[in-house]
Structures are given as C-alpha cells and as structure tokens.
C-alpha cells in the first residue's frame, strides 16, 4: 500500500530531476549581470563622487549586489531550505556588529599616537600647562565639567 501511494505521487518513476533549479540560461544571465557590475564598479572608481566615504560606499554597495547574486543563485540560497539562509545571514549580522562596533570606536576617539611622536610642546611649565586634552589633566579637586572648558590652561609661572 505504502509503495503504491509513493508511486502514485511520482508517476514518472524515472524522472530523476526532482529538485533541480536554475539552468544554463539563468546562470548565464547571472554571469552577465556580474560582469556588467564589474565594469560599473571599475568605472565608478574613476569618478570622484564627492570625497569622504562616498566612493567606498558605492564600491561596497555594488560588491554587495554582486555577492547577493552569487549567494542567491550560484549558491542556491534562493531555493534552499531556510536554515542555510539563517546561518549565512546571522554570520553577516555578527560580522556587521564586529565591524560597526570597531569602526565607531575608532572614529570616536583620537588615534593613540605614542607620546614620543607628539609634536614638541613649547616648554613644559607648571603641572597642568601645555596643550593637553580637556579633562585629562584637570587639577585635582576641581570639577572637570566646570573648569576644563571655561578656564584656559594655567599660564606657566615665570
């Protein structure tokens, strides 16, 4: 009985192509799109899109588009069971957290130059003098919030 129902569900027993997706035409079209995007990304890199991060962002957007095409069609994510997509997307999510966390930390603080690479200070005078960062060397006992921004560094004693 069980065999009969199985056979009925698949009347063409010798048709061995149950889960084949895509095909030469689709894959060829994807390859064409990838090559066109490669030309576009090379072309876009020769144009100045307004300084700053604009060029990098455009290049990364095109790369992400290309990567999506490869993952969705060549790697069959489009047709796969959800689990593979979940694995891949969660990987990208944590990679994004890693990148964003590190990058915002980097741009939010001054680059820690070694002390011996700092431009020479005019003349070290009394403690607390010289071009220091506000708040870091505020005199003990004074509130940095009130004193540091208002009072200029104490003039060096003569």
């Amino acid at each position: 009985m069980a065999l009969d129902t199985t056979a009925a569900a698949h009347p063409e027993v010798h048709d061995h192509e149950p889960h084949v997706h895509g095909g030469p035409k689709l894959y060829g079209a994807i390859l064409g799109a990838l090559l066109v995007l490669t030309v576009i990304t090379v072309g876009a890199s020769m144009i100045d899109w307004g300084g700053g991060m604009a060029n990098v962002i455009i290049a990364m957007l095109i790369a992400t588009l290309k990567a999506s095409l490869v993952a969705l069609f060549f790697m069959h994510l489009r047709w796969d069971k959800p689990m593979t997509g979940i694995i891949f997307c969660s990987t990208l999510f944590f990679l994004g957290l890693f990148l964003i966390g590190c990058y915002t930390d980097q741009v939010a603080r001054p680059w820690p130059e070694p002390a011996n690479l700092k431009p020479p200070v005019a003349k070290p005078g009394a403690p607390g003098s010289g071009p220091t960062m506000p708040g870091t060397t505020a005199p003990v006992g004074t509130s940095p919030a009130s004193s540091a921004p208002v009072t200029p560094p104490a003039p060096a004693a003569h």
Partner: peptide, 19 residues
C-alpha cells in the same frame, strides 16, 4: 568555490579601486 569568489568580489574594490 563560490565563497572564494564571494570574498574576491569584496577584495577587488577594496584593494584595487579605493580612492
């Protein structure tokens, strides 16, 4: 093999095309 391709898709603009 597609992953190897995928990584190169990012390496190429980052290394060769930055401006």
């Amino acid at each position: 093999w597609h992953l190897v391709d995928l990584i190169w898709i990012y390496l190429f603009p980052l290394l060769y095309l930055i401006t």
